[in-house]
Simulated assay, not measured.
Amino acid sequence: MTTIDLSSNHFEGVIPKTLKDLSSLWLLNLSHNNLIGHIPMELGQLNTLEALDLSWNWLTGNILQELTRMNFLAFLNVSQNHLVGPIPHGLQFNTFENYSYGGNLDLCGLPLSKQCGTSDSSHVPQPLESAEEGESYFFSGFSWELVVIGYSFGLVVGTVMWSLMFKYRKSKWFVEFFDGLMPHKRRRPKKRAQRRRT
């Protein structure tokens, strides 16, 4: 067993500690489930593990220093959980960026901008944002931009039309312009009546 990908299911419960027995495992993906509890320190015994993805679960507790024992870990993602405390340092953990820890509002230390030992009184924990909520926010902002663009375009066109009307000062030009937009049939003069009179 070298790879385990159980992502995007509805698995519940804790991460089993017996995963440490899979000594040849190099990829472990348990993301997008409903896993709870702590990240087991036994995962640090997976010396050949290169990719670990535990994102989008309900994991709590600290990221333990024991996890820095994974010498070949090249990819780590524990984002969108409820992890707390300082991020451990050492070996591969010094190479991971912000996205590896995003969404854990109570994590602190590098590479995050939040320093450990500081409290933010204005911080109010928010529930994890679902994909549908993110899409609705995007489309609401997108429609607002369309409104502004449409209003600006209409304002420019209206200003140009108004200035042309005052420049020529001829209401006839204005009438002919709209007659061109909405052409209508004009009645022809009755020639028969004229012939009878002659």
Rank of each mutant, 00 (worst) to 15 (best):
S100Y: 14
N94T: 05
K172S: 15
K20Q: 09
D5P: 02
M1R: 08
A131Y: 11
Q80P: 01
S55Q: 04
P189N: 07
K170A: 14
W173G: 05
R195Q: 15
H32D: 09
P40R: 07
H123I: 08
S113N: 10
G134R: 09
M1I: 14
T95Y: 13
N34G: 11
N34W: 08
W58T: 11
T95E: 11
P16F: 08
L105F: 05
N57E: 07
G85I: 14
S113L: 13
S136G: 00
E135F: 11
L91Q: 11
G109N: 03
W26C: 06
L6K: 02
R169D: 08
Q80A: 13
M41Q: 07
E176S: 05
N104T: 01
D120F: 02
M182F: 11
G85M: 05
V147F: 04
S24D: 15
L146K: 08
K191V: 13
G103K: 01
M182A: 04
L43I: 08
L25D: 03
S7K: 01
L52M: 14
T48W: 00
K17M: 13
W162G: 10
T159S: 08
V124G: 06
G44L: 04
F142I: 04
Y137R: 15
R186S: 14
I39H: 02
I87T: 08
L49I: 10
W26F: 14
C108H: 01
L54R: 04
R186V: 15
S113G: 09
